Amino acid sequence: MAKRQKDEEREYRIMMEAVVDAYCPEEQAIGWYCYLQDRIAFPFKARCIRERSISPLRKGEEVIAESMASEDDCMHEMFVMVKWKGRSMGLPLAQLEPINADEDTIESIGDWRYWVDRGYEFG
């Protein structure tokens, strides 16, 4: 996948709000977790925008995102707990696009997807 074009406004927000004062991979993961936990209004409806080998969702399928997964589960990638086909499970947040969510939810999930699409990693 080609890297997404650099967005200076998003870069600044991420550096000043999500990973500010994070000096190691664990601190960056915790920073992202707290940033998303504070800004995402759960529950919200979401659509799968990309398939992943670790997820049962197919592009276009919809789920209800209920909460962030545990902090321990988000030390390498951000996951959300969803309700899908009568089951609860964790899915990669970068796989989802919010539907009819509030502005902060849309922006913060967009920030995470931007981070992933740019090829950034904790570290």
Rank of each mutant, 00 (worst) to 15 (best):
I30H: 06
F42T: 05
M15Q: 09
C34A: 08
D102E: 11
S55F: 01
V116I: 14
E26G: 06
R50Y: 10
C48S: 13
F42C: 08
I54Q: 11
D117S: 10
A94R: 04
I40W: 05
S53F: 13
Y35P: 02
E121G: 12
E8S: 02
Q37P: 00
L91R: 03
A69R: 00
F79R: 07
V63A: 04
E11M: 06
Q28C: 10
A69Q: 01
Y23T: 12
S108M: 13
K59L: 13
D38M: 09
C24S: 06
L96T: 05
V116A: 03
W84A: 02
Q37F: 12
I40V: 14
F42L: 08
A2Y: 14
P43G: 14
R47N: 08
E27F: 07
M1H: 08
T105L: 09
I109M: 11
A101E: 05
Y35M: 07
G31E: 05
E71I: 08
K45S: 12
D73A: 12
R118H: 10
G110I: 07
I64M: 10
C74T: 12
I106E: 10
A101N: 03
I106Q: 09
F42R: 01
M1S: 15
K3E: 04
F44C: 03
K59W: 06
M78T: 08
A94L: 04
D72K: 02
A18T: 01
E103I: 13
D73S: 09
A41C: 11
V19T: 14
C24H: 10
M15K: 12
E17Q: 11
I49T: 12
D72M: 06
D102L: 03
P25L: 05
Y12Q: 15
E8W: 00
C48Q: 08
E17T: 06
G90H: 08
G123V: 08
R113I: 15
C34K: 10
D72V: 07
R39K: 14
D111T: 02
K59M: 14
W84D: 06
P43K: 04
D38L: 02
C24M: 05
R47W: 01
Q28V: 09
P98R: 04
Q28L: 06
V82W: 00
E77M: 11
G31I: 03
E103H: 11
W112P: 00
S88Y: 14
D117R: 03
F44D: 02
V80Q: 03
E51F: 06
M75K: 10
A69H: 04
V19P: 03
G90D: 10
L91F: 07
Q37C: 08
E27A: 13
D38V: 02
R87W: 05
W32G: 00
D104E: 15
E71G: 00
L57Q: 01
T105N: 02
A2H: 13
V63E: 05
W32I: 01
E61K: 13
R52F: 12
G123S: 14
C48W: 02
K6D: 09
Q5M: 11
S88D: 07
A29Y: 01
D73K: 10
V63S: 04
W32V: 00
C48Y: 00
M89A: 12
M78S: 11
E62C: 04
A2N: 14
S88W: 13
Q5T: 13
E66M: 14
C24N: 15
D7F: 01
A69L: 01
A69M: 04
